[in-house]
Every structure is written in C-alpha cells, then in structure tokens.
C-alpha cells in the first residue's frame, strides 16, 4: 500500500500533499543523513565520535603534559596520587591533575588524551584491513560461485568456529607481541563478517537486469564488480564497519590488557589499565579512567553504527522524508 509521501512529488503538488518546496531530493545518502540526524542516540554517538577525533588530532595541545613525562622533581606529587580538581575543593596550592598521577608519576589525564589517538588509529586501521580483504573475498566468492565460493566460505567458517579472542591471542603469539600485530590479529579475525555481508549483497544483485545489461554491453567482470555490484554492497558494509570500529577498539584493548598488544610506555588504554590492575584497591582511579575512556569510545561508535543501520534500513528506504 503506497502512502501519500511515496508518490512522485511533481505530480501531486496540491493542498493535501504540500508544495514541491516541502520535499527534498531522495538520494540514498541524503535520506540516510536526514534520518540519522533525527535519531537522538545516533546524534549523541556522532558528537562523541567528533569530540574524540578532535582530542586525537589536538592531543598535544589539549594534554597539559607530554604522554611520557615523569613529574619527579618538577612538581610536588606522589606516585598514584588521587585526582586533584580545584573546582571540587582540592587546595589551590596543589597542582591540578584531574585524573590523578600514575605509577610512574605521570599525569594520567595527558596519557588518556594521547590514548585517544592510539585507540582511534587502532579502530580505523583494523577495520580498514578487514574491510578491504573481507569485501574482496566476499565479492569474489559471491560473483564467481562454484568451488571457489565454497572453498573461501568454508575456510572463513573455520575462522568463525573459534572464539574471537582466543584466535586473536594465538595469532598474536605467532606474529609477536606488539600493537601492530594485535591490530592485524583482530583484523584477520574480523574478515569473515565483512566477507559474508559482501557475498550476500553480491548474490542479491548478481542476476539483476542492470548487471546483465552491463555484461551484454561488454563490461569486464572487474568493471561489473567495481561499478555495479560493490556500490550496492556499500550500505551494509558501512554499518558493520562502524560497529566494527567499536569491536576492534574493545578487543585490541583486551589484547593489550593481557600483555599481547601495546607495550608500556605507550599510552594505550588497555595496557595502562593492565599495568595498574593490581593497584585497583589502593588507586582505583588508575583503573577507572582508562576503562571509562574505552567505554565512551566504544559507545560512540556503537551508537553511530546503530543509527546508520536504522537510517539505511531498506524497509524504510521508500518511506519518503517530509521537511519538518
């Protein structure tokens, strides 16, 4: 059943429908953006993500101290000192450290700010690798079909049969313990998700008449994949990539927590948390703040990803959006 707003705008310029000026063009991306802005949670996620991006870019300006600067001999502070915020009643003669001092007498806030850079890089880099390899494998599998499809998908099934973190731990052990390898491990483990989504999209458009038309016009397989098929797989990929950034940050932090990712003195939140975990009862702020930072970052991308999914939901795609 069609609704009024679904009807072509030009033909229904009357009092019941509203004037042409009440409507905006319905390109997929414009519609998506408009729907995205209507969702409070997605807007919150987007704003949080922008703030984090801003913090990562201007970390050197925002952070009052260098990420690895020890304050011994510079300020009168103690190891693992609790936060001191002047606004909250901390004496003015004491230096302000809003997140306290860590076990190596460094300003925790400065390290958290610099950690934003590491975490966002981890998120984008990991998803970048996974999306390129995954969508390529998925596209080839879906487009060619037959034994190649079967072999690729069965291999990916094996990867999926492992619990995510356990496989990542094993890969890091093989490659060596550092942040780059931890990111690679998380990327490898995430590949099946991207491959499956791409393959499903490819299968759904492979037999469409416009693909056949391109083929009849003599387009090569590569041209068809690039020009006709992959653009159709893009919306679901963007959604899982946004959610994937959240997962990548969370899992890489977990690897760093286990001592398999970033190594001290890198200001990575997971490893910062790990190095102070035994002090949780005496200096809880050193565990609380890095964890909170991870949670806020992951939350930002989860909210944004959920919002994008709702905005790109094909069931709503033809609902038409009226100017409000």
């Amino acid at each position: 059943m069609s609704t009024v707003s679904e009807l072509p705008v030009e033909e229904h310029d009357d009092a019941h429908v509203g004037s042409i000026g009440d409507y905006k063009s319905n390109s997929l991306w414009r519609l998506t953006l408009r729907r995205l802005f209507r969702q409070k949670s997605a807007v919150v996620g987007g704003i949080l993500a922008l703030i984090l991006l801003f913090m990562a870019i201007f970390a050197d300006v925002i952070a009052p101290y260098d990420k690895n600067q020890t304050l011994i001999g510079i300020e009168d502070v103690k190891r693992r000192q609790s936060p001191c915020i002047h606004l909250l009643g901390c004496p003015e003669d004491q230096p302000q450290h809003i997140m306290g001092i860590d076990g190596n007498v460094r300003d925790e806030f400065s390290r958290i700010v610099h950690g934003t850079r590491v975490s966002l890089f981890v998120g984008f880099f990991t998803v970048g690798i996974a999306i390129v390899v995954g969508s390529l494998l998925g596209a080839v599998a879906g487009y060619t079909g037959g034994w190649l499809d079967n072999s690729i998908m069965r291999i990916l099934d094996v990867v999926l049969a492992f619990p995510f973190l356990i496989l990542a731990i094993a890969i890091v052990q093989v490659l060596g313990r550092n942040l780059t390898n931890a990111m690679l491990a998380i990327a490898i483990v995430s590949i099946p998700a991207y491959a499956r989504v791409t393959r499903a999209s490819v299968l759904s458009v492979r037999e469409k008449s416009y693909v056949e038309a391109s083929r009849a016009l003599g387009a090569s397989n590569l041209q068809i994949l690039r020009g006709r098929i992959l653009p159709n797989a893009l919306p679901p990929l963007i959604v899982i990539a946004t959610l994937g950034i959240a997962t990548a940050i969370l899992e890489t932090a977990a690897l760093s927590f286990l001592g398999l990712g970033a190594q001290p003195p890198d200001p990575e939140w997971g490893s910062m948390l790990a190095s102070e975990r035994n002090q949780v009862f005496s200096a809880p702020h050193l565990v609380f703040f890095p964890g909170l930072a991870i949670m806020i970052t992951v939350l930002a991308f989860n909210l944004l990803g959920d919002g994008l999914r709702d905005a790109l939901d094909p069931r709503l795609a033809h609902a038409g959006v009226k100017k409000e």
Partner: peptide, 16 residues
C-alpha cells in the same frame, strides 16, 4: 548500549 560497550576486564575490576 552502555553494557555492550563495556570492557569485561574493566567491569570485573570495578565490581571487585
């Protein structure tokens, strides 16, 4: 949304 974004290791330590 907050629950799904929480690192398990952090939550564990905070609960402890």
């Amino acid at each position: 949304n907050i629950g799904v974004s929480m690192p398990v290791f952090w939550l564990g330590l905070m609960l402890a």
